[in-house]
């Protein structure tokens, strides 16, 4: 399985350079301009997105699934490797943003405080996992080409959603349900919220892995 994850990197070494450059762009657009650490999360997520998108499109381009599944691997490994590489690409995204952030500071840009906070790091993984938990079952069913539009749409949603959700909540603060949820969040200790979020992401991922495995296992190449 590690070989399958390694493969996802080896087939796109050039993406590393693209990611490095993109990182500065993200810092500039999200970070410097608005002076928020959203640049870190958005940048890392976008880099992860970039890697995963390339990986799946290369896999599908020459129907490499046929070659891959002729090697001594089980289909479930192919599926699990795809999910694990989400984590790996998240890491690459995070490291790229840390390096880029460090360099940006070196060049005299004022970087936001808590640019690299543990919360941000967890946020990157959470966002990527949820995003690809939606994407992968559909990808394994329909293939990368048909999923191109869905993929872009998903990415945009993830970027726009938090702000839109925030506004929605602010506008509907008097709604009893929202009030209740907000109260729960305000009154619960931070650790509880963190554990709950973690559990939610884990649950979504597990359901998605199960679905993807079932789809991929019964696929005819």
């Amino acid at each position: 399985m590690l070989r399958l994850i390694l493969k996802d990197i080896l087939i796109q070494k050039k993406t590393l350079l693209t990611a490095f450059i993109y990182g500065f762009f993200a810092i500039y657009v999200f970070g410097v301009k608005y002076y928020t650490n959203g640049g870190f999360v958005a940048g890392a997520v976008a880099i992860g997105y970039l890697f995963i998108t390339y990986a799946v499109s290369y896999d599908d381009k020459n129907n490499c699934h046929i070659a891959l599944n002729s090697l001594p691997v089980k289909r479930i490994e192919v599926v699990l490797a795809k999910y694990l590489s989400v984590v790996l690409f998240g890491c690459i995204g995070i490291f790229t943003m840390i390096i880029d952030g460090f360099l940006a500071e070196l060049f005299g840009f004022a970087m936001p405080k808590n640019y690299v906070a543990i919360n941000n790091v967890l946020m990157v993984f959470g966002v990527l996992l949820v995003m690809y938990s939606i994407y992968y079952p559909l990808y394994f069913r329909f293939g990368a080409v048909k999923m191109n539009i869905v993929n872009v749409f998903l990415f945009m949603t993830i970027i726009v959603l938090p702000k839109a959700l925030g506004e929605f909540i602010l506008n509907h603060e008097n709604n009893p349900l929202i009030k209740e949820v907000l109260n729960f969040i305000r009154n619960s200790p931070k650790s509880v919220i963190q554990i709950l979020s973690f559990a939610a992401v884990a649950l979504i991922s597990l359901i998605s892995i199960g679905t993807s495995t079932r789809i991929y296992k019964s696929k005819d190449f």
Partner: peptide, 17 residues
């Protein structure tokens, strides 16, 4: 599959490599 060598009629490898 550890002990099978396969050759297919078309290329199913990563072309850009």
């Amino acid at each position: 599959k550890e002990k099978i060598g396969f050759v297919y009629d078309e290329n199913y490898f990563y072309e850009h490599l």
